[in-house]
């Protein structure tokens, strides 16, 4: 049985020009312990699908026209905001694209992480290794320790002192590691990563990908990896879904889909990936300096 199942999800967004349907019938199934890649070009609805799973699309301007999202048997579309809030961070973790804007600049890393740890510990004190009736102080100490441990595991050196630094003192790659650690505090079963490496340079990208795949392997994690980079999907994912114009056009085992695509859009998308055999584009005369 799949951990997550999305059926016929339809979402409209309101703007000054009226309502536009941005998701028109998304179907997506993610099995337990899978790394499901979601690829597609900009505007195909990948990110909105990811946000919809956590019900983070603001309504209005968004409006759901239909469909179901089942997570571990529970229908998220009918869940109350309070039920959703308990799932977020605890069952469903999220990592976003730009690490420079996703940490609150006015607070120390420790403040942000400890608040999240204390919050998840409210429903499950075991997570930070304390009893339900521990004192406030004991909770704080345990929560901090859990955050320091996680920072160490994502590769922040000297986490015990670095945790008290402000976000702007970290590089982009380090900030993304902090955000990964943050998302892991609640030991979520599903991690939704929305282009987590797009804003990083190539070498850092590889390190962060390596880190994420090791986490999925070691901890009982399922991941949805949203990206437009097919190369990353081929390296990292077990399954892939290709999205176009608010719909999943093809999905399946990653090797099968990338080797023998059936859908015409998937073929087109794959042919757009540059390889060594890709012919060079015709030289632009103006750009080359040959002014006519």
């Amino acid at each position: 049985m799949s951990l997550l199942e999305i059926n016929g999800l339809r979402l409209a967004m309101r703007s000054f020009d009226g309502e536009t349907e941005v998701l028109n019938g998304v179907d997506l199934a993610v099995g337990e312990n899978a790394i499901a890649g979601v690829v597609g070009e900009t505007g195909s609805g990948k990110s909105l699908t990811g946000l919809s799973i956590s019900r983070l699309v603001p309504t209005p301007p968004g409006r759901y026209l239909g469909g179901t999202i089942r997570f571990d048997g529970q229908d998220l579309m009918t869940a109350s905001e309070e039920e959703m809030r308990r799932l977020r961070g605890r069952q469903i973790g999220m990592i976003f694209q730009d690490p420079t804007t996703n940490l609150n600049p006015a607070f120390r890393i420790s403040t942000q992480m400890v608040d999240i740890a204390l919050n998840v510990a409210k429903s499950d004190p075991e997570l930070i290794g304390i009893q339900a009736r521990s004192s406030r102080r004991a909770r704080r100490v345990a929560a901090r320790q859990r955050c320091v441990d996680l920072l160490g595991q994502v590769g922040i050196s000297d986490p015990d002192t670095r945790i008290d630094a402000y976000p702007h003192t970290f590089s982009g790659g380090m900030r993304q590691r902090v955000l990964i650690a943050m998302a892991l505090i609640g030991q979520p079963r599903l991690l939704i990563a929305d282009e987590p490496t797009t804003a990083l340079d190539v070498s850092v990208q590889a390190q962060v990908l390596e880190l994420m795949s090791s986490f999925v392997r070691e901890r009982d994690l399922t991941m949805i990896f949203i990206t437009h980079n097919i190369g990353v999907v081929a390296q990292l994912c077990t399954d892939v879904s290709v999205m176009n114009a608010g719909r999943v056009v093809e999905s399946g085992d990653v090797r099968k889909v990338l080797k023998n695509p059936e859908d015409s859009y998937t073929k087109e998308l794959l042919s757009a990936v540059m390889t060594r055999d890709t012919p060079r584009p015709a030289r632009n005369r103006a750009a080359a300096g040959a002014v006519a």
Partner: peptide, 24 residues
Amino acid sequence: DYVQTERALGLPSSLILFKYVSKN
């Protein structure tokens, strides 16, 4: 973005608004 992240990781809105948003 960081407000969205704080929501996505399950912090209660009162904490987000009166601590994290108000200081900024």
